[in-house]
Simulated assay, not measured.
Amino acid sequence: MTQFIGTGVALITPFNKDLSIDFDALERLVEHNIKNGTEYLVISGTTGESVTVTPNEKKELVKFISKVNNKRLPLVLGIGGNNTAAIINEIEATDFSDIDAILSVSPYYSKPTQEGIYQHFKAIAEVSPKPIILYNVPGRTASNVTPETTLRLARDFNNIIAVKEAGNNVHQYLELLRNKPKDFLVLSGDDDLALSVALAGGSGVISVIGQALPKDFSEMIRLGIKGNAKEAYKLHFKLMPITGLIFSENNPAGIKAVLNELKISDCYVRLPLVEATNKLKIDIAEALKVFV
Rank of each mutant, 00 (worst) to 15 (best):
N16R: 13
I282K: 13
K111H: 12
A285S: 12
Q172C: 09
L262M: 14
A229F: 11
F237M: 14
L134N: 04
E231T: 08
A123W: 12
G37L: 12
A162G: 01
E27G: 06
A198H: 01
L271I: 08
L245P: 09
I209D: 13
D283I: 02
A85I: 14
Y109T: 04
F15N: 00
A101F: 04
D183P: 13
E115D: 15
N89T: 15
H171A: 15
G189I: 11
E219T: 14
L77P: 09
N136C: 10
K281H: 07
I132P: 01
L41N: 03
I5C: 02
S248A: 13
A154M: 05
N33F: 01
E39S: 15
D283K: 12
K238D: 11
E261R: 13
S143H: 04
V42P: 02
Y135T: 07
K289T: 15
V30S: 11
K256H: 06
E275A: 02
V9Q: 08
I209R: 11
F96K: 03
I264S: 04
K122S: 06
D191I: 02
L185E: 10
V76M: 15
V76A: 15
E60Q: 02
S66H: 06
N144P: 09
T243M: 14
A229I: 07
T13E: 01
N56M: 13
I221C: 15
E249W: 03
A25M: 04
F96M: 04
M220E: 08
I264R: 04
I43S: 11
V42F: 08
K17D: 08
A142W: 08
N179C: 08
T84K: 14
N33Q: 05
I87H: 05
P241E: 13
L199R: 04
Y135M: 10
T277W: 03
K234L: 14
K215P: 02
Q114V: 14
N179I: 03
I43M: 02
E219P: 01
Q119V: 06
L75V: 03
D191S: 07
T277V: 08
K238I: 08
N36G: 03
G210N: 01
H32V: 06
M240I: 03
S50M: 12
S44H: 15
G204C: 03
D191Y: 10
T2H: 14
S97R: 11
D216N: 14
I246Y: 14
Y40N: 13
V274P: 00
I246Q: 09
G6E: 13
I117W: 10
V42Q: 06
L29D: 07
L195Q: 05
Y109H: 14
N36Q: 14
Y173H: 06
G81T: 05
D156N: 11
I34H: 02
P252Y: 13
A198L: 06
I87Q: 07
A229P: 06
L29N: 03
H32F: 13
A200F: 12
P74H: 05
E115W: 07
E60L: 00
G204V: 09
L26M: 15
K230G: 04
P252S: 08
I12C: 03
T2N: 15
G80Y: 03
S218F: 04
D24R: 00
E275Q: 13
G6V: 12
V163K: 02
V9E: 05
